[in-house]
């Protein structure tokens, strides 16, 4: 119990700080927590809001599936060969640290202005951490696993699926958790720029109209969603540790 009271108090403190900030900021362009919650209630009644949410959810779901499958596959391919791993790791780390927004116009020019550009951008964000985690987990795997697989005469495909993947599952789940959050960020940033759809667009559009309660309501909603999803994956992560 103790472990949840502390964080809850900190979160409460943040809400109080927000309220104080709302009172301090002159003529209050910053809505109070209560106004934000009320606006969220209004949005929930709004059909347009659900349309944009569905757009974001669709792009995000596809991006997560693609980046998870592609990230794990690429991670296994690179991790199974020590040289390939050592060669690609610094390149991947650098791609990870790169402000990927810089490259968003390229994605737009390649994929057009539709949903596929946002999916591709989400995959760009989400795939790299998963590849890195999978690859490093395999490189640090005890050699005895791979040797036993070789002794039993397994093909490299069977070794990957039956021996390596189960052994590195905890790291893969950690990578999936990171990839999940970054994928969401990628899709949202994609929607904030040059898009007419999704929650990211809803936020930039509300900002242009000076509709701050909507901006904050959507931002808080997304933060809560991300935290809950993260907590669920973290619980899965803990239950799988061995």
């Amino acid at each position: 119990m103790r472990s949840t009271i502390g964080p809850a108090l900190v979160l409460l403190g943040l809400v109080v700080a927000w309220e104080i900030l709302h009172l301090v900021v002159a003529n209050s362009g910053l809505p109070s927590p209560f106004e934000t919650l009320a606006q969220l209630g209004v949005l929930f009644q709004d059909a347009d809001f659900w349309k944009e949410t569905a757009q974001t959810a669709q792009a995000f779901a596809i991006a997560v599936v693609i980046s998870t499958i592609a990230g794990i596959t690429l991670g296994i391919l690179l991790g199974m060969n020590r040289t390939a791993g050592a060669v690609s790791e610094p390149i991947l780390v650098n791609l990870y640290a790169l402000p990927k927004v810089t490259l968003y116009p390229v994605v737009l020019l390649l994929f057009g202005l539709g949903i596929s550009a946002r999916i591709a951008f989400g995959v760009m964000h989400g795939m790299i951490p998963l590849t890195l985690f999978t690859m490093n987990a395999i490189l640090q795997l005890k050699p005895v696993y791979r040797r036993s697989a070789a002794v039993m005469g397994l093909s490299s495909f069977d070794t990957s699926i039956r021996v390596v993947l189960p052994a590195i599952l905890p790291e893969v789940i950690t990578g999936t958790r990171l990839g999940f959050s970054l994928c969401l960020l990628g899709v949202l940033i994609g929607e904030m720029f040059a898009s007419r759809n999704g929650l990211g667009y809803l936020v930039t559009h509300a900002m242009e109209r000076g509709d701050m309660p909507t901006v904050l309501a959507v931002a808080v909603l997304l933060a809560v969603f991300a935290l809950l999803a993260n907590a669920a994956l973290l619980a899965l992560d803990r239950s799988r540790r061995h």
Partner: peptide, 19 residues
């Protein structure tokens, strides 16, 4: 109190608070 929050901090799309 703070550490569990720090651990999941990077899950939040902080960037949405830019406005």
């Amino acid at each position: 109190a703070v550490e569990p929050l720090l651990a999941s901090y990077y899950a939040v799309p902080t960037f949405m608070f830019y406005p």
